[in-house]
Design a protein around this nucleic acid. Structure first.
Lengths: 206, 206
DNA sequence: TTCATAACTGCACATAAATACAGTATCGCA
DNA sequence: TGCGATACTGTATTTATGTGCAGTTATGAA
């Protein structure tokens, strides 16, 4: 009953990110514009559903009157940073339970578009040193994003999340490993692409 | 010139408190209602004055379009990101005027300690590729921080901010350039160290 | 004095925004 | 088969909101 659909999660995520980015929730027009709706009613329907399910509130008939209810859970995009390899097969659903570490990061403040499917990986080892990704770096990824040729993606190999470079050639996709432990090229179709790298954060060693 | 009157401070305070309380800035009517103005123009005048004095911004003719600028001073550390080379000799004082680009970044959310002397540089070229710092990366630096051996620091060379590696040996400090354009080693005493790198942010190419 | 500015009142107006209403299409379910 | 929910298109209507114009009062500087 209280479950949100995929689309509703996307709309809620957009409302949240707009709130933290601009300091005010979006209008129905802005929601419709962001998702490409040609009708305001589409956005209004989603907002009505989110209101009905209790995750949105606020006075009616007021400009930018939306308020996200579960502020503690959802006001900011909290990126979950699992220890290397913690993400396993049942990705989308079980993500919450399987993360061992969690660091809150406000991606909107970085100008990085963040949705409900944004997550992060802490890099272990020098396997991606060819792409200048170092041990200890934080890689921000987006699940379900359409990758482009040369993008760094996370794939599930031997029950571990591994970063690879996506290579598209003659209509086929390959994953180029920068880690000698694995074959240099792997057909992308055989693997689950967990996410596409959208940003990287490196901190000075404490 | 830039001083706010007592009344203007009150209005600004109300806008700020409404923003943090409700998640959106107030409308002119709400401002007028709170202060007992019987005319909207009173509120509009104050907002116009606050805009003119630079503490308020945001798009015009938009519902709840006000945005408080002073966030940089009070709430969040907004990091100024000058285009490469924009930082020149008069560093601390003239920083505001000389920045060409500016991106607000909430460093606290990254777990990076940020002070008034935190700033950032956008990296141009591959001169720091040896430290896996790529073209287009955002380097967050701290001015006045005590550097450690091997830290990446920004130094002023030929009126440009240049990233170098600090090497300490036998009580002496050297700057190791990763850029063939400059001598490999430079005595650190002869140069002004503008800041020590504390973090790095890399975004996916749009 | 005159002028500028701050701090308002009061009204009119254009538009930004939310909402209502009437449909269409798909899907799972009983 | 019908029903409800989801996910939309398209149009119209009402409300909310920002802004413009004209005028008042007070204060302080030229």
């Amino acid at each position: 009953m209280n479950e949100l659909t995929q689309r509703q999660r996307e709309v809620l995520g957009f409302i949240q990110s707009t709130q933290s980015r601009l300091g005010a929730p979006p209008t129905l027009r802005e929601i419709a514009g962001h998702f490409g709706f040609r009708s305001l009613t589409a956005a209004a329907d989603h907002v009505r559903a989110l209101r009905h399910k209790g995750v949105l509130t606020g006075p009616p008939r007021r400009a930018r009157g939306l308020r996200v209810v579960s502020a503690a859970k959802t006001r900011r995009v909290m990126v979950e940073i699992p220890i290397y390899g913690a993400i396993s097969a049942g990705f989308a659903q079980d993500r919450q339970q399987e993360t061992k570490g969690c660091v809150p990061v406000d991606l909107a403040s970085l100008g990085i578009p963040s949705t409900a499917r944004t997550f992060a990986l802490e890099v272990h080892g020098d396997s991606m040193i060819g792409r200048h990704i170092m041990d200890g770096d934080l890689v921000i990824l987006e699940h379900g994003m359409n990758p482009r040729n040369g993008d760094v993606v996370a794939a599930l190999i031997d029950n571990e999340s591994t970063l690879k470079t996506l290579v598209m050639e003659r209509g086929k996709s390959w994953l180029r490993a920068e880690n000698p432990k694995y074959p240099l090229l792997t057909p992308a179709q055989e693997l689950v692409i967990q996410g596409v790298m959208v940003a990287l954060i490196r901190k000075r060693q404490g």
